[in-house]
Design a protein around this nucleic acid. Sequence first.
RNA 1: GGAGACGUGUCCGAGUGGUUGAAGGAGCACGCCUGGAAAGUGUGUAUAUGGGAAACUGUAUCAAGGGUUCGAAUCCCUUCGUCUCCGCCA
Length: 425
Amino acid sequence: MLQISFIRQNIDFVKERIQHKNFKEVSIVDSIVALDEQVRKLKVESETLQASMNTASKEIGMLMGKGEKGLAEEKKEEVSKNKSALQQLNEQLGAAEKQLQDELVKLPNLPHSTVPKGKTPEENEVVRAGGNKPVLPETAVPHWELIKKYDLVDFETGAKITGSGFPLYKGKGAKLQRSLIQYFLDYNTAAGYTEYLPPLLVNEASAYGTGQLPDKEGQMYHATADNFYMIPTAEVPVTNIYRDEIVKESELPIKMTAYTPCFRREAGSFGADVRGLNRVHQFDKVEIIQLVHPEKSYEVLEEMVQHVEQLLQNLQLPYRLLRLCGGDMSFASAITYDFEVYSAAQQKWLEVSSVSNFESFQSNRLKARFKDANGKTQLVHTLNGSSLALPRIVASLLENNQTEKGILLPEVLHAYFGKNSIGDL
RNA sequence: GGAGACGUGUCCGAGUGGUUGAAGGAGCACGCCUGGAAAGUGUGUAUAUGGGAAACUGUAUCAAGGGUUCGAAUCCCUUCGUCUCCGCCA
């Protein structure tokens, strides 16, 4: 959520930037400004009235203390008269505030000046690429075939237990998940991130805090009996650690990492996109999250991008780094970099990480703040990135490293996996 | 899930309708004292938001939300959380 004071002072700029994000309802900005003005006007009226009533009440208290009952009774009646007027004012004020809030949450974050123009994924900018695409033998097959061959994931039984898109990992497949998770966490903690293992269900306030609500309600599984939401990413519970908190400037940057399963309804997905591990309803992901000083957030963004990039290099996967165009970026993001790995048998680029700077958009909703050197409270900037999402990493590892006899694993995984390959190598 | 107790500022803790944003203490900050420190001592010490150039000032906040009242930390209702006992359970 953008700060109302900022919008108020930069109306034209806000209008210009949201269009860059392919946001059409520019008129919302005008209605926000109008509502804000109305709210403030009503507030002054209401508070002035309230103040006079408060003063009168105190006077009544003093009169009672002196035993001057008659005078006190007179005052009481006087104040009573104002009550309905105040109530009316407050109703108007409440309605206006709600309207303002409703409009405010519809407004996306403003894209950073370096975000490329564009509306579709095709217009994303390739920043750089790394690793080498493998040359596969004629007999190479996509990962869902390899999964069958080595009995790594049982999709059918997963569908029986729950539904399609809920993979049942098995044997070496399960162990590979565990190895990757542990490797990623170790890699992140070595870089100074503190490991968390958060709740996987969150309440409404948390879902709202990171912007999943009201925006992406349909994307989350909702446990209605208790009104909890299953997390679509660790970002939600972990970022909410600092909801309504004020930290000392010296505590920044706060670096956190967490492994969690992620649950996504992915309503409307179909076809080749959902084949095998390409898109599933439950998947494992290790996330990195930082809360930083506003002046440092772009520096930290670069640092996080490099951190993820190194991880992909360690896994020896061919990858490319994209700077997302305005239209393809998420609602809350000011700038987003995506990492994609090349899955050689499918001959497809698969998104495995998304690194974003939210600036103060999330922290404004969360009220995650710090006290600066002058003792003023300021919003922190929040950033997060996947390091990494597992299924597509697994897909790419399997496809790119397949041989006649088995699948070779990158060296960094050998110790975790307890073996250097899957199969009879 | 049932029964009971409770939820006050950074922390401890007083406060059952009237100048209480909240006694007292601790902590913290700054000053005095000291060769330096400790002790002692003085002052200050919430957040949000409106108005104001500023000094300053209005409003709200004693878990959250609602209600009663001229007036609520104090009374009532709902929700959430903590603790104790019982039940269930890994």
